[in-house]
């Protein structure tokens, strides 16, 4: 489904390479976890996959379902089924949640040549999802993420995911800032949503999340590269000993 091959990415503003030769292959239905120290480039990787401005692709390719992903516009990638739950969800004052969600959903449907959803069906759909995630009506009436707590914002990201039904989901530290109950709720949301045709890239600092969302693979990212890949026990190892065993691996490749 997603093939990243020897990707190198620098910042546009300053001459600084962040992703330094990263390869990763994800098949339909797989859950991949990425762990790594602060500043190792995890969010940069997410942003590059989603198509954010401000980066230069120095070399390498990203292939999604057989086509060149890096060629597509941000909103085209979204319509192809790529969704990124933001580490820091953005506030949009004055734009109601419902309006935002409906505009997004119908834009995607339009891009895919599907008919727009009418108001009644849309409302039913959103209300159902909001209920499962225990997001109140009052929250839904607010402007997008404005005045929401950190945890509420993360839940809102999951709501958007469930509504837009993407095929490839990046969760960038969605667990950070969630209380225990909220984490269970969010994990349940993700697990209910997962299927044999959907894949996940789960970025996290905490092994705990991976007890709920169980990964097929765990990757350790250091200084812009994946330095180690293993199964879910690798996360336990990190939890116990930190990244010191891996830092050397990162440096060795310079």
């Amino acid at each position: 489904m997603l093939n990243i091959d020897d990707l190198k990415v620098s910042l546009e503003e300053e001459e600084k390479q962040i992703i330094k030769g990263l390869s990763l292959s994800i098949k339909p239905g797989e859950v991949h976890a990425v762990m790594g120290p602060n500043g190792s480039g995890k969010s940069t990787l997410s942003s590059v996959l989603a198509g954010k401005d401000g980066y230069i692709i120095d070399s390498g390719t990203v292939n999604f379902d057989g086509s060149d992903l890096l060629d597509a516009e941000v909103e085209e990638r979204a319509a192809l089924g790529i969704f990124m739950a933001f580490q820091y969800p953005i506030e949009i004052p004055g734009v109601g949640n419902m309006n935002f969600l409906r505009t997004a959903l119908n834009s995607q449907r339009k891009t895919r040549g599907q008919e727009e959803l009418n108001a009644a069906d849309f409302l039913k759909l959103v209300r159902g999802i909001a209920k499962d995630l225990e997001i109140s009506d009052e929250m839904m009436k607010r402007p997008v993420n404005v005045g929401a707590s950190g945890g509420e914002k993360k839940r809102n990201e999951i709501l958007q995911m469930c509504l837009l039904e993407p095929r490839f989901v990046i969760l960038d530290e969605t667990d950070s800032g969630l209380d225990v109950d909220a984490m269970k709720l969010v994990s349940k949301g993700v697990n209910n949503f997962s299927s044999s045709s959907r894949s996940f890239l789960v970025i996290t600092h905490y092994q705990r999340l991976l007890n709920y969302i169980v990964p097929d693979f765990v990757h350790i990212m250091v200084d812009g590269r994946i330095v180690k890949t293993g199964d879910k026990t690798l996360a336990l190892h990190v939890e116990e000993t930190g990244y010191k065993d891996f830092l050397q691996l990162g440096k060795g490749k310079h």
């Binding site: 989603a50 954010k52 941000v74 909103e75 997004a104 959903l105």
Partner: peptide, 9 residues
């Protein structure tokens, strides 16, 4: 970027 990531042109 946030809007566009959600599919809005």
């Amino acid at each position: 970027f946030y809007c566009m990531q959600r599919g809005i042109g």
